[in-house]
């Protein structure tokens, strides 16, 4: 496995300071673009953070579908001999959503309505994408240096057993 592949495979843990920087970037983007909501989603479809207004009742489902949709598009690109389709856009009557790739690790999802427009969103999204990409690279690099450490060391020692017990209580 190459060094790059190792970096991609390494578990990414989101610490408060990292997410704070990401959120600052997303807040700035929302202010400039007039978009409704900005979400950062990891490649597995988990929501990393969301800023702005809520979208629907289940942001987790939106994140999962966005990741699935983007993954399908990437596969299409591969079949067509393209390196990547790095931006995906869905237009609705009231709301539209743009998905952009942030490196290999994340997706940048932007929901906007008629208070903004595609040109504005894309202009500021490209700027933010670059900065988010740098943030992720830095996070990945920092965590790759600590690859031998237990990524879950910040969790309580009894986290696993407590979670299993919670699942037992559920069913």
């Amino acid at each position: 496995m190459t060094h790059d592949e190792k970096l991609r495979q390494a578990q990414l843990v989101f610490y408060a300071e990292d997410v704070s920087e990401i959120e600052q970037e997303l807040d700035g983007f929302l202010e400039l673009s007039g978009a409704r909501c900005a979400m950062l989603i990891d490649r597995g479809g988990h929501l990393v953070t969301r800023r702005g207004e809520s979208v629907g009742e289940s942001p987790e489902s939106v994140a999962a579908l966005a990741a699935g949709s983007f993954a399908a598009t990437r596969e299409m690109a591969r079949l067509m001999g393209e390196d990547d389709f790095n931006t995906l856009f869905h237009q609705g009557t009231r709301e539209s959503i743009q998905l952009s790739q942030i490196g290999d690790r994340a997706l940048f999802a932007i929901v906007f309505d008629d208070r903004s427009n595609l040109g504005l969103v894309r202009f500021y999204a490209e700027e933010s994408q670059g900065r988010l990409r740098e943030l992720f690279q830095e996070m990945t690099r920092r965590q790759a240096e600590r690859v031998d450490e237990d990524p879950a060391r910040g969790l309580a020692a009894d986290f696993s057993s407590s979670a299993a017990a919670a699942l037992d209580e559920l069913f």
Partner: peptide
């Protein structure tokens, strides 16, 4: 589902034994 969930949660701790309690799934 519970068996897999327990295994997944257990796999969180890469270094076995370091922070996984004996009573863990």
């Amino acid at each position: 589902l519970k068996a897999l969930a327990a295994a997944v949660l257990d796999s969180l701790h890469k270094s076995s034994g370091s922070s996984v309690p004996a009573s863990a799934p």
